[in-house]
Nucleic acid binder design. Structure first.
Length: 563
RNA sequence: GCCCUUAUCGUCUAGUGGUUAGGAUGUCAGGUUCUCAGCCUGAAGACUCGGGUUCAACUCCCGAUAGGGGUACCA
């Protein structure tokens, strides 16, 4: 290398003394089985975590851990303009709320764990520069002094002539600058970037994507920026350097990166490194009008993972929904393995074919949630709901705290056997579902009987209430209880089953269902509630008495029955 | 504009050169010791279009169309 070139490089990247070999030594090949996958998630701290980010992270995490590999998190904070304070913390927290834990990288405390760090790109500036220097020395990179304005002009000219835009071929003005010209510009302190010098000329290259399969892409011929004028690397360069040094074996990322593949491959080649395997994941979309579009951080509240957290969708259920999107075999597996931890499901990439990007289906999410919560034990429901309430519903939390045994009893209604009740979608549903069990909420004189029990005379309502109190015995099991209820129905002139009522309507005042509904309304203040027998058992005899006795609450007027 | 990519019920998808094109979700109907949530049974619902190749195409090839992505000193 001649003297002038050395001088240029020294001016371009002062204080970069380390040889690239030294760095390589610091990041040795990981001592792992051949089949072990090293994956990562590499978010930019520019805002909240998108549901698609969880999707990618989940896939990467499972791929690593099911192969006894390593999953790490790397913060890609090279765009200082878009960076948002605290975003890194929020991101780590979001992943952890979905139980996606990284083996290496920054933790919630702000410290880092792992031997392949730093795991934040802004702390790796020197490393990128060392490899940029290597490329400069080898003639695979050069400084570019084009101003943003000049670049804009090039772009406009290209558009006007309907040719491909970009910095390549004869459009790459700075590519052929002589050393003297470069030195001159440098001496004038002109700002510069370092560009990669591409050898490509547009031939097709074959590429095998983990998800999309075999693809043919045009070779890269763009002299892209690798080091920006602020000294930080661009995504492309940082990705190549980091994923090589950190020994990533499988890069899973959004399919918006697919067209950068030729570039990344050429970058790896120029540094004599083996590229990782790539898998490009379809983006999660939303239907707007008749067309699909990417779920937008701005417009769609459901893009933000905190949307689900705040409303109390169980994170595990969201994971299961996403797992099914990743591998449609999950649904079948879940059916066969009702209560098994979903980590036991072996995720395969073969079903995540080149789909055009799934639409987020809230109905399906809700169905998964219902099913998930349905199979939880009373204790687990209590715990998860409590943890949610602690953050988002102090009222509910206090109630759960003060009356935990009673609340658990409520949660255990129809939670037995192999056909659990499935009416809870999210933790924020629970308040409404349990409030009538509490006396301070339940105000019997506010129940609108005309509306809730239309067509039933008030005198009849009272008769039913009184009669029920007479026949009710706490010790009865459900069969005995129901038998008595039927007897009572007959005694009061109602059909004890709906069939006979339908056959001879004129013979009856109504049917057993009317009796049950009357009691339900008196006891809960609503027409919809879980199994009546279990509700009564849960409430206990005292509440039953207060709610059914004392006919004053039934009659707003002075009407008094004589029964 | 150029480049890449994708195309099966409303949605998520399985699948094959010869299938009654399967499942899930949603919808509707019936059932279930009372309402609701379930659960069970059933119904409606799909291979984008046009050419080719073939005895035979949803499946292979070529076009068209439509969707998605890229085309930055953003990631």
């Amino acid at each position: 290398m001649n003297k002038i070139k050395k001088e240029i490089i020294e001016k371009l990247l002062p204080d970069i003394k380390n040889a690239s070999e030294c760095i390589e030594k610091k990041y040795p090949v990981r001592n792992m089985e051949k089949s072990a996958k090293i994956t990562r998630i590499a978010p930019s701290p520019t805002g909240f975590v998108h549901i698609g980010g969880i999707f990618t992270a989940l896939l990467s995490e499972r791929l690593a851990h099911q192969s006894n590999g390593v999953f790490f998190i790397r913060i890609e904070d090279t765009d200082k303009k878009r960076e948002i304070a605290e975003a890194t913390k929020l991101i780590i927290e979001s992943f952890e709320r979905f139980k996606i834990f990284a083996d290496e990288g920054e933790t919630l405390s702000g410290e880092e764990k792992g031997e392949y760090g730093p795991y934040k790109q802004s702390k790796r500036e020197q490393i990128y520069k060392i490899f940029a220097k290597k490329l400069l020395e080898q003639g695979r990179a050069y400084p570019c002094f084009c101003s943003l304005d000049e670049l804009k002009k090039i772009n406009e000219a290209q558009q006007k002539n309907e040719i491909r835009t970009g910095y390549y071929g004869e459009w790459a003005q700075c590519r052929e600058k002589s050393n003297e010209e470069i030195l001159q510009a440098l001496n004038k302190n002109k700002p510069f970037v370092i560009r990669f010098k591409s050898n490509g000329n547009g031939n097709k290259i074959k590429f095998n994507d983990l998800i999309k399969g075999e693809l043919f892409l045009p070779e890269n011929d763009q002299d892209i920026v690798i080091i920006k004028s602020n000294g930080l690397p661009t995504y492309h360069f940082a990705h190549v350097v980091d994923d090589h040094l950190m020994r990533t074996t499988d890069v899973l990322r959004g399919e918006e990166w697919l067209s950068s593949i030729p570039l990344h491959l050429e970058l790896f080649e120029s540094l004599c490194w083996d590229p990782p395997q790539y898998g490009h994941i379809p983006t999660i979309n939303k239907l707007e009008g008749n067309s699909k579009r990417k779920l937008s951080k701005r417009k769609d509240p459901e893009a933000d993972v905190f949307y689900y957290i705040k409303d109390g969708y169980p994170s595990e259920a969201i994971i299961e929904y996403l797992l099914n999107l990743i591998d449609s075999g999950f649904e079948e597996w879940r059916k066969q393995n009702l209560k098994v931890d979903n980590k036991k499901f072996y995720v395969s990439l073969k079903h995540l074919s080149g789909s055009a990007g799934p639409l987020l289906d809230m109905q399906k999410i809700e169905d998964v949630c219902k099913d998930y919560i349905g199979w939880l034990s009373t204790e687990e429901v209590f715990l998860q709901c409590f943890n949610w309430a602690k953050e988002y519903d102090m009222d509910l939390m206090k109630r759960m705290q003060n009356d935990s045994e009673y609340v658990k009893k409520i949660f255990s209604i129809e939670r037995d056997g192999n056909q659990p009740r499935k009416d809870i979608i999210k933790w924020s549903d629970i308040k409404y579902q349990i409030e009538y069990f509490f006396d301070d909420f339940f105000e019997k004189n506010k129940i609108n009987l005309n509306e809730l029990l239309p067509g039933i005379e008030k005198i009849e309502i009272e008769k039913i209430a009184k009669q029920f109190l007479l026949i009710y015995n706490e010790k009865d099991n459900k069969e005995e209880w129901f038998f008595k209820l039927k007897e009572m129905a007959k005694f009061l002139g109602y059909a004890d089953n709906i069939k006979s009522y339908k056959e001879q309507k004129e013979q009856y005042k109504g049917h057993i269902g009317d009796i049950a509904m009357t009691l339900r309304v008196l006891l809960t203040g609503r027409r919809q509630a879980p199994d009546l027998f279990q509700v009564i058992q849960c409430m206990g005899i005292n509440r039953l008495n207060t709610r059914l006795q004392n006919p004053n609450f039934i009659f707003v007027s002075l009407f008094v029955s004589s029964i």
